[in-house]
Structures are given as C-alpha cells and as structure tokens.
Simulated scan of single mutants.
Amino acid sequence: MPDEKDTLTRYLRAGREALLWKLDGLSERDARWPLTPTGTNLLGLVKHVGSMEYDYFGLVFGRPKPEPMPWLEDGAEDNADLWATAEQSREWVVDFYGRACAHADATIEALDLDAPGSVPWWSPDRKDVTLHTILVHMIAETQRHAGHADILRETLDGRIGMRETNTNLPDHDAQWWAAYVQKLKDIAEQAGP
C-alpha cells in the first residue's frame, strides 16, 4: 500500500502527464493559439504550471530555481507566464516544464511531508505551509489547468480525453455527439433567457 507522499506524488504526476499530452501532435501555431477572450492557450498553460512548480517547490522551501524566469520578475509584462514568446518554442516550453518538474521532484524526495515552507506571495495568515500543503495545492493547480487544456484541445481539433488510452467519455460516433449537443441546446433554450 503506498504511503501518503507516494499517493500525492502519483496524482501530481498524472496531472502533469495529462497537461503535456494535450500538446501532442499540435503545430507551433495551434499550441500557441489563444482560444478565449483572455488569451488562454495550451503552451502558455504549460509554461505557467512549470513556473509554479519551480516557485512552489523551490522558492517556498529555500531551494531556488536554477534558471531565470524573467516573466515572473517585478516589472514583467502582465500574464507573461501565460504565453510563450516567439523565441520560446514548443520544445523549449516542454523542456522547461520537464526541468521544473525534476526540480520539484527533488524537493519532494528530499523533504518530509511536514517540512516547513513559506509562500511569500500568500497572506500572512496563510503563508506558513508544509510540503503536504504545497503538494495538495499543486495537484489542484495542475489538474485545474489540465482541465482548461482539455477544453482548449477539444476546441482546436476535437481531441478529447484524460490521456491517449482513456477518453473518459462514452464511445459514440460524431452523429451521436451532434444529437447529444443539440439535446443540451434544446434544454437550455427551454430554460429561458
């Protein structure tokens, strides 16, 4: 039976894999394409979550990141962690994410769940944390953005699922799904404005 740290780490890794899988097979353009009115895009989500991995498992526990992240510095452009610059290729962002996860994994391996840390950007009444708290926080953060990525990817090209081998949806053809969506639209219309 796995211990609590192993269980938390397994859920964090599952979220990481789901997030990265959403980039598989996409062109540079599609990986960067903003699909919401606020510019949310797949590559930006991966860059953001990598940045959070570095800060939450690094800075919070006195284990600074080994590379600069100018997009998080004071004076950086707003939301600069949520999109890739022209110089930051898809490959660069995926490698950055891998380095951030490796740095996080080293922290997780080195520390006990009750190891203390401090989140300087959280309010004074919440900033003192443990590794356990940060693991739970990053599972939630990663899974939240993996959910965003699910919707973005489906919008881009219709690819769905938790991972390649598990769509987590009923296996129906396009005609069934079109009828299903129409049924939901009809119900929404009947509900009124």
Rank of each mutant, 00 (worst) to 15 (best):
I139P: 01
D55L: 13
Q143R: 03
T38G: 10
L169C: 07
L42V: 13
E77N: 05
E17K: 12
N168L: 07
E109D: 15
L20I: 13
P120R: 05
M1Q: 07
W92I: 11
N79W: 15
D186V: 07
A104E: 01
M52C: 14
L156P: 05
L135R: 01
G147H: 02
M162A: 11
Q143S: 14
W121Y: 13
S89L: 04
R163K: 12
M162E: 11
W92M: 12
I108K: 00
A104Q: 03
A18C: 13
L184T: 15
E91F: 06
E4S: 02
G147W: 03
D3R: 00
Y180N: 07
M162H: 14
N166A: 11
E77A: 15
L113P: 02
D186A: 10
D112N: 08
V129A: 03
L23I: 13
D186N: 12
A146N: 10
E73G: 07
E154A: 10
A100H: 07
I139D: 02
W92H: 14
L43R: 08
D173E: 06
D105K: 02
E141K: 07
D114L: 01
D78A: 15
W177A: 01
K185D: 15
A146D: 09
W71R: 00
T155S: 11
G39Y: 12
L152P: 07
N166C: 09
D128L: 00
Y11L: 03
M162T: 15
A86Y: 04
R126Y: 06
A106W: 08
E91M: 04
T9G: 01
R63T: 04
K127M: 11
P116E: 05
L152V: 10
H48C: 02
D95F: 08
L35T: 07
D24A: 12
W122E: 09
H48Q: 03
D55H: 13
G98F: 04
P66S: 09
S123H: 15
E141T: 10
T9V: 04
E4K: 02
M69C: 08
E67Q: 01
N79A: 13
F57N: 03
A110D: 11
V49M: 08
L82R: 14
Q143K: 04
A18P: 05
G15D: 07
A179S: 12
R10V: 13
R126T: 07
S89F: 13
N168P: 03
F96I: 03
D125A: 06
